[in-house]
Design a protein around this nucleic acid. Sequence first.
DNA 1: CTCTCTCTTGTTTACGTGAACATCACGAGC
DNA 2: GCTCGTGATGTTCACGTAAACAAGAGAGAG
Lengths: 365, 365
Amino acid sequence: MEPDGPARQVPGPIGGAQRGGSGIPGGRRKQRVSMADVARLAGVSSQTVSRVSNGHPGVVGATREQVLAAMRELGYRPNSAARALRYGQFNTIGVILFGLASTGNSRTVEAIATHAAAEGYAITLIPIGIPTQDNVLGAFTRMGELAVDAVIVIIEIHLLDAGTVTLPPGVHVVVVDSDAGDRYSVVDTDQAEGARLAVRHLLDLGHHTVWHVTGPKTSFAAQRRAQAWRLALEEAGRPVPPPLHGDWSAESGYAAGLALAAEPGCTAVFASNDQMALGLLRAFHERGRAVPADISVVGFDDIPDASCFVPPLTTVHQDFAEVGRRCVQGVLRQIREGGASQPGTDLVPTRLVVRDSTAPPRTRR
Amino acid sequence: MEPDGPARQVPGPIGGAQRGGSGIPGGRRKQRVSMADVARLAGVSSQTVSRVSNGHPGVVGATREQVLAAMRELGYRPNSAARALRYGQFNTIGVILFGLASTGNSRTVEAIATHAAAEGYAITLIPIGIPTQDNVLGAFTRMGELAVDAVIVIIEIHLLDAGTVTLPPGVHVVVVDSDAGDRYSVVDTDQAEGARLAVRHLLDLGHHTVWHVTGPKTSFAAQRRAQAWRLALEEAGRPVPPPLHGDWSAESGYAAGLALAAEPGCTAVFASNDQMALGLLRAFHERGRAVPADISVVGFDDIPDASCFVPPLTTVHQDFAEVGRRCVQGVLRQIREGGASQPGTDLVPTRLVVRDSTAPPRTRR
DNA sequence: CTCTCTCTTGTTTACGTGAACATCACGAGC
DNA sequence: GCTCGTGATGTTCACGTAAACAAGAGAGAG
């Protein structure tokens, strides 16, 4: 298509020519160098500068060189606001989330940012402090004014299913970790499959039943893992012990572990994430319950540290990178096809990583 | 100043009026609703719409209501590209980073995003896959084209100190975790102080010397922690054991731990982060070296999980939230004062959190 | 030699917004 | 009754870019 060099010319770091600096009395008006400035210096029209800037063909070598030289001298950088205005798009994807504290979120966001960058899109973070209806609603509304072509939502969307919230029209959206697949385009880890794998692994080892430490009630991922845990036990005809409730933190897992250590019949626990599993390990260690000899533990996420827990944790591996990739793919498809969000759920498979925290129950020996 | 209501009117979520959707054959030109459209419907001039949209005073009640109604009906949302073009700024801060994988980065970014949002600024993530000179340089250059008023750099800036790289002029910048304080405005955790606290704590417990597991050689934080470790030992007149090199990962800490477990004289280890400390704990556990009875371990970061390691980890607490806060403060000051980046380093203090992984050496008994 | 075709460059215009200025109506003060 | 001020609203224009169209120059064909 464009045989001559890179498609987009980038002016290198500049030397001087920063417009005097203190010359203008009023302040910082007109600090930026525009195409017109470059054109004037190069002795061409601004349209020619535009063509050079965008690597369009049809600019003869000598002219192009002149323009490039002028760009360098003035330190020209294209104004993306003007570009966005002209083209009607921002090449930016917004990401709405609660926080980056959880491993899953930060890794998903990282994958989103990386893949988006590869496609020429930047990522704008829209954090929501406290996950109240109002705050989420506010973020959605604010988003309408934001310089964003599409949005990826990484929050528990069921906070808004009262029906009061409608996404601004014309904004493409993909939702992560939600059961809103009937209304939005959803990308999600196959939570149910993962939980099932965990439970089946423990049952197959010979455990009579499996206890469960849940994530926070507000989390859909946690809900679904708990649901699948229950279902897997029921399918196998095993009793379903009362679940213990955690909040994703290791501390909450520790608290649950102290309680479970006092349950004599408990030989296997499935924690809804690896942090809580870590808390379990600590509690069992302190209470003298050996893992895996006395109690087996399975986590969820497969955070990098899990292989160095004591003992190394058997856990369900989540492919956050893949989730991020599909999110970007999803919004880009919407942007390019111009269509609205097509409802549907895109499930990313999970797999069980067996390490040293699970073993057959001692009573079986 | 503006006594009547909120300064910026936000149109609520709309009902219908999405411009037919399939009506336009050619595609997506003119999907957006502009001020002119609202003005036409409301029977006023677009300037009046602008005034209402920005909450300016001097629009009489009835007119304002008409305009608001028209906005609602059409689903008007202001075009931020046009706004940015008009005002010459984007209300956006760019964050250049390697990845969100490390706890520190993701928590710092979260704090940045939160504080920026509170000031009305959005965050644009500019991830750099592989930290080569070229990639970093590319990101800086690309940034010039990006819709960003200022930049926070969370990478090892010494990758670029060859002098070949100059930040685009007029872009305000704050650098995290760097020794470029002579050239840039730097915000950083007081790495040296933290490392010193860790070493002194172990020496004060009676250990003869302290071994060290470093972070990657490319990391300035790791370098400074190692340097401070060495200095603290020398100041106390103690021998300086050869440092072991890790890469921040728990696995690398585990490898170092296996080596250290074979060192009979090793009774105290300072790991450059908590993940590697976790690896140490695992290695010592597997080799039958009790922590803290046989060997004391100190980490760095105080990640939330550290309190649930086995045993709970003594570590140096870093205040990532404060780092993020000061970064935002720094760039905002630059933006508002219009000045360039004033060189200087802003140190955030650290503190030692003593838990159960440290104790006097057994030989002292 | 002229006509047309192509290749390069210039001119005009629109994108959506909001500051600056213009206009208009109305009421108070002389 | 006239002027002037005040407050509400309209008009013009510029922000920086790039598409669409226009114009000019040179080359090849008749």
